[in-house]
Design a binder for these strands. Sequence first.
RNA 1: GCCCCCGUAGCUCAGGGGAUAGAGCACUGCCCUCCGGAGGCAGGUGCACAGGUUCGAAUCCUGUCGGGGGCGCCA
Length: 545
Amino acid sequence: MVASEISQGSLTGEAAASLSAEKIPLERPKNREHGDYASSIALALAKSEGKTPRVIAELIKTGLEAIDEISKVEIAGPGFINITLNKSSQGAVVARVLNEREKFGEVKTLAGVKINLEFISANPTGPLHLGHTRWAAVGDALASVLAAAGAQVTREFYINDRGNQMDLFGASIRAVALGIERPEDGYQGEYIKDLAKLILAQHPEYVNLPESESIAAFREAGYALQLQEQKDVLDNFGTHFDIWFSERSLHGGDALAKSLAKLKSQGHLFELEGATWLRTTDFGDDKDRVLVKSGGELTYFASDTAYYLDKRERGFDICIYMLGADHHGYVGRLKATAACAGDNPEYNIHVLIGQLVKIMEGGVELKLSKRAGTIITLEELVAKVGVDAARYTLIRYPVDTPMVLDIDLLKRRTNDNPVYYVQYAHARIAALLRNAKELGVDYGINYFNPELLTHERERELLGGLAQYPEIVRSSAELRQPHRVARFIEELATLYHGFYSDCRVLPMGEEKPSPIHSTRATLCEATRQTISNGLSLLGVSAPERM
RNA sequence: GCCCCCGUAGCUCAGGGGAUAGAGCACUGCCCUCCGGAGGCAGGUGCACAGGUUCGAAUCCUGUCGGGGGCGCCA
């Protein structure tokens, strides 16, 4: 906004530069003494222009000073250009926030782009564990962030309801129901017993069926129950999917045949020793992949391929996959698959690899062992620390860094836990605005006078608010929702600082005056922005806590 | 053997080439005459190592060391 005006202004003012506006580096300096914006453009241009950075900076400075909104331009250090805006321009963001309300922060950088965001995609053979939980939080937040950047986003869950694992699942439940030993490599968890009990209560006759029919019956009943549980748990967690996509549906329809035909037409299929292969090595994969085994069965890879092509068929421009670190081997073949189908893997596919989450409780790491029964489920984590704390904590770190969750810390209702720090700021503003109403302090755009905001804390807070749309934009572009979390923490800090130094409401017998109204309006804009950020993360913004 | 991720403060982690590298926790000391002290202010320690690219590197490239994860006509 203001930033782009400035870069264009500097261009026309300086005329000679042969750069596009987007390329002009313009940032908010870490040090506020360096103004509202700073640019290192003169340093970058020095070589090609054959002038010293300071000479170029002087030229640009002249152009910038002609712009009304700019009150001061300084050249510092080796040639940085530091720009300070005038008061009303600094304050303009408040009017913008209050006009746009919950839409403040939305940008259009991804307008018109259809994105399929697939995450979690667990087998329906057990509860969702900690790894799934990270994705449940981050995936949902990322979807919101992408939507805020203008994209048309579909949240999709791929149900792996086909293959050996499903039969093992059925056999395991049946074994418990019959009171016999479970299969060697079957499912050992306690929840299998619960499923067996539930199914037996409704269908005692299942145990009398011939073995393979019996396994199938238990498998299907267990599948339905387990899937429903996953849906309920996610619903309770605040993560809602638009589409639950069954792998079976791929095989039921003509999707597989279509994908094979498509790949064949592109010329990357070949036969070897009775199997059908896809030559993914043409596009950087480390080995070719089998689609149809020599026995005629389709591989899991065939499903993945058909699934990807099905998504493209459904009109998605970009397919984002969120995978666990243990699946990073898929990236190469997934991108190669897209290339084999004639797509551009650098654009049409985006794979996020999530590192694993460790969990500490009572000072020791909980080892996630299914056998030892210490597997932490999404449900258990929420029961321990609550939805807001769980979601927020999982989101505030980039997914490619391994993280450690300290349960004891998350249980504390103190600002050891950043979610409370942010929520507290929101609740504090809400309380203050309730008081403002009682005291007869009017606030809103019509009562806002930016010329009155002269305190350093006020300027910093205004500067913080102005950054929000850019945070949303970069967060979407980089697929990093944690940036939103870090931003609202920063904003909360700015607010608390402002609050302690700048009295908002009248004291004692004091009459309400424009400064009270102006500051209260600034508070309201801050509250709105924090609320918008929390909303993207799927975390509540309490009025009281 | 090959591939991926990570290495920043005592701990958990931010830092998409830029000026003096940050936050929370932990430790010390201040700030309650009035808006929510779940807050603010002050105090000190760090980019694993070595090269390279650049006017400029925690950031990009290469290598070494250290930690985690992965390799299948499995799902």
